[in-house]
Amino acid sequence: MLKKITTAAAAVLLAALTACGSGGSGDAGSPSGNAKGDDKITMGFAQVGAESGWRTANTKSIQEEAAAAGIELKFSDAQQKQENQIKAIRSYIQQKVDVIAFSPVVETGWDAVLLEAKRANIPVILTDRAVDSDDTSLYKTFLGSDFVEEGKKAGEWLKANAAGAKNVVELQGTTGAAPAIDRKKGFEDAIAGTDLKVVATQTGDFTRSGGKQVMEAFLKSVPQIDVVYAHNDDMGLGAIEAIKAAGKVPGKDIKIITVDAVKDGMTALAAGEINFIVECNPLLGKQLMELAKKVVAGEEVPPRVVTEEGTFTVDQAKTELPNRKY
C-alpha cells in the first residue's frame, strides 16, 4: 500500500507539473509575427492571470493601448503561477523582444530571470506590482499603484467613520503578493493607536469563492464583527453573500471596505452593500506604452510612476457607476 501511495503521489505530482508547464504560454492573447526585423517595437507582457474583473480590465487596457500605439504585443497568461511567468519571460528573452513588461505574481524570486534579461540587454518594466530585490538595476521603472497608500486610505476612512465600530476582520489577497502585503500594512498603520483592531485575518486568494468561504468561517468563530476590510472587490462580494446567509445586513450590521472599484464592486457600493471603495486603477496601458517607447529609445525614465487613483463613497458610486467601463 505504501508503495502504491508513493507511486500515486509521484504520478499526481508529475501531472501537476506537466499541467503547469503547458499552461505557461497563453490560453489568452494572440502572439503573432516575429520579433525584430522592423522598426516596430515588440513588447513581451507576462500577465498574472485573469483572477478578477480588475485584472481583465488591466489586460484589455494593455492590449488596446498597444494596438493604438503601434506596438506589437506578445501576451501570456501565467494563471497565477510564478513558474509560468518566469517561463514566459525566458521565452521573450529568447525571442529577443525589445522590451519586457510584467506584473509579478509574488514579490520575491525574480533576480535570476531578470538578470538574464539584463544580460540580453532587454529593458524590463514592472507594472502594477513591485518585486522585492536589492538590485534596482534589474528593471527600468515600476508603473503602478501605491498599495500602502491604498491601505492607508481605507484605514483613514474607517477612522473617520468608525461610529463605535471596533472589531475588523481582514480578507487578504494571495499570500506573498505585493498588494496583499502592502494593503495590510497601510491599513494597520492607519488604524494604529485607535480602538479599531484587526481581530482575524486570512487569505481569500482575491477570489469571490475564497472570500465567501473565509467570511463564513469568521462569522462563526469571531464573536463580534463590525467591519470587513477586503483587499479586493471580489472577496468583498463573496463576503456580502456570506453575511446575507448569516441573516445580517451587509453595509449596515457589518461595514465593508474594499479596494479596486471594478463594476460589480461599484454596483454593490451604489446599492449600499459596500460602504467605501479605494480605487486601484487598472487602465495603465497608455502610460505603459509611453514608458516602453521612452525606454526602448534609451531615454531616462523615473524609477517609480504612480497611477492616478481616487476613492468612492456610496453617493459618489451612484454618479460614477454609469460611466464605469470595467
Binding site: G49, A50, E51, Q79, Q80, D205, T207, R208, S209, K212, L237, G238, E241
Partner: peptide, 12 residues
C-alpha cells in the same frame, strides 16, 4: 461552485 457565488470564474 459557480452557483455558490453566482459567477463563473474560468481560471479559479
Amino acid at each position: 461552485i459557480s452557483s455558490n457565488v453566482s459567477a463563473a470564474d474560468a481560471n479559479n
